[in-house]
Amino acid sequence: MKSSRSVLLALALSGVLAVTAACGDKKDDGGVAPAAASGSTSAAASPSADARTELIGAFKKLTGGTVAYTTATDTGAVASTKLTGFSDPANKTNSGKMTITTQGQQLTAEVIVVGTDLYLKVGAPIPGVDPKKWMYVDGSKTSLSKLGLGNPDDPANVKGLADAFVSVERTGTGAYKGTFDATKRQMPAAAGALLQQMGDAAKSVPFEATVNADGYVTSLTMQMPAAGQVPASTVTTTFADFGKPVTISKPAAADVQPAPAALLAQFA
């Protein structure tokens, strides 16, 4: 990247695209995931069961234990991102590594969330920042959602989706499709601006999801509509390794520095 601003804009864009459909702070649960898992089966499925109820139940299970996730966002010529990470809702921790490709350049970033403490490392020059150290953000003073992150007790960003479902239908064993209203999700400010630019299309966003035999959502694919100069994008998330041990800890104090005011200002 040529400047700290371009770095921050890339981060903001990536966060917005990832959370526009998947992030929220409301009280009910939802989930994300594309690509069907081999032999997936809905544990709650029965001929008379309501597809919406089944899918909501599968999303809720994601908040009950550790999980590994991968989210890929393709926004054509504007940007593409890939985020891989692990979350531990019980301990309110989350970690992820992101690769952002935009304007012919590539940016990498790493994030660790422990409670309200956020640590960010960006693989690009930012004035006044040691690239070898983690930047610290006090999440108790600036909402993590403004930084494109879900609450640490819901690091997989699955809460609130149930309120947004418009339609859900079962298309096969453990397979679902439907639409959701993205305007009914609680979003970061930047994401809210994009939603406004989507117009009525934001109220009927297509998705497909799969659920495995144990009742966990394993994949979700969302087709986000165009927003202003941001073209239509495909957001694909997969979940795996449910309940497997995960260790996420804060960086050593010697490896931490305060996040610059210029970065925080981007998400104010």
Rank of each mutant, 00 (worst) to 15 (best):
S4I: 07
A10Q: 01
L11E: 09
V16F: 03
D29Q: 10
A36D: 06
G57D: 12
A58Q: 06
F59S: 09
L62G: 03
T63E: 12
T63K: 10
G65K: 03
G65Y: 04
A68I: 08
Y69A: 01
T73I: 07
T75N: 12
G76M: 11
S80L: 12
L83G: 01
F86T: 00
D88G: 02
P89I: 04
A90G: 08
N91T: 10
K92C: 07
M98K: 04
Q103H: 10
Q105W: 15
T116D: 15
D117C: 02
L118Y: 09
I126V: 15
G128K: 11
P131K: 06
S140V: 00
T142H: 09
L149Q: 12
N151F: 05
A156K: 06
A156T: 10
N157C: 15
G160E: 07
L161F: 11
A164F: 05
E169S: 15
R170W: 02
T171P: 04
T171W: 09
G172N: 13
A175F: 14
K177Y: 14
F180P: 00
D181T: 08
T183N: 15
K184W: 06
M187E: 06
A189G: 04
M198A: 03
A201L: 07
V205E: 02
A209T: 08
A213I: 12
V217D: 05
T221M: 14
T221P: 10
Q223Y: 12
P225I: 05
Q229E: 09
A232G: 12
V235Y: 06
T237R: 05
T237W: 02
A240Y: 09
T247N: 04
T247A: 11
A254L: 09
Q257C: 07
P260L: 11
A262I: 14
